[in-house]
Design a protein around this nucleic acid. Structure first.
Lengths: 161, 161
DNA sequence: CTAAAAGTGGACAATCATTATCCACTTTGT
DNA sequence: ACAAAGTGGATAATGATTGTCCACTTTTAG
């Protein structure tokens, strides 16, 4: 088992967080978002596309285009962001060692699968219990108001429509 | 976040399982273990060394040497195997995006860290609740007795001392 | 109507952690 | 003394993640 936040998911969460500052109907161009977060702009575009495919973000093409939330912060669970980026497939999959060791006929028998599924679902349930809205609430505890206001100002300056 | 059983941990669990069949004081050479499990023998040696370092296995060098359990199956939690192979470090570590986004002074502030720690500890608690002994019990449900007996016979044929 | 700005999708390259190999060295039994 | 087996370290191969590029479509502005 491996338990590591890939930067893709982390970046996505923060990107969505940034978009919560947008007024209704306004959008933020992708390169503004990536500039604000730092890191690779082109890779970031791919993340944004995944978030669009997952219906978390809406995109407007063309000049004056950009991205905005497609759901409310309350509706977006951290788990949804995770699935949007990583996909659902990253659940435990046996490598067949148990099968080989015991010379079993049925390829699908695996000793660890039950345990791993339980562990994963326990992990996921935590991520399902937290939404983007939860995080925005916590921002105020963790971050000085002035920094937050500065960020809001930047967003409003760069947004379109 | 990424949740995937690396084969190292999986192999290790099965290796330990295999060693539970050994009578007191007997040992099984490393290459016998890896042959039984399949996969790379040399990589497997590295895993065994990690398990020895973690005090889960005892090793006897020299001719007629090999490996045996250092603890009882009841004492070895799946979590212990995980930590032995992966190390404790694979906890969530922020990549500093939150910091960059908000221009914070304190590098260590991270919005996601609390959530991730909670999710991880929930995941780990499942792995702490299961031991090698638990798995041996389940083997009988999942695996025909004849295959199991065949495995035991092989182990007894190849063991030393 | 044309150009510029912005998102889309796919092919492809770079990076990094994991997995795998090799070798010189030590320990133990015969 | 020699063979079998574990140890530790250096190093290569692999594969997933991350990052780049480019041709294409959509929209707005002039």
């Amino acid at each position: 088992m491996f338990l590591h936040m890939k930067t893709g998911v982390e970046q996505s969460v923060y990107a969505i967080l940034l978009l919560t500052f947008l007024p209704e109907k306004a959008v933020l161009p992708g390169d503004v978002i990536s500039t604000q977060l730092g890191g690779s702009a082109t890779y970031f575009q791919k993340l944004l596309r995944k978030l669009v495919s997952a219906d978390l973000l809406a995109s407007v093409p063309g000049s004056k285009g950009g991205f905005r939330l497609k759901k409310t912060p309350e509706e977006i669970r951290i788990y949804d962001v995770y699935v949007a980026i990583e996909g659902k497939q990253s659940l435990y999959s046996s490598s067949g060692i148990f099968h080989d060791m015991l010379n079993l006929k049925d390829k699908d028998i695996c000793l660890l699968s039950d345990l791993m599924e339980e562990a994963e679902s326990s992990w996921q349930s935590i991520l399902k219990g937290q939404t983007i809205a939860t995080l925005t609430n916590e921002i105020h505890k963790k971050c000085p108001k002035e920094n937050l206001d500065m960020l809001k100002t930047t967003v409003e300056k760069k947004m379109v429509r």
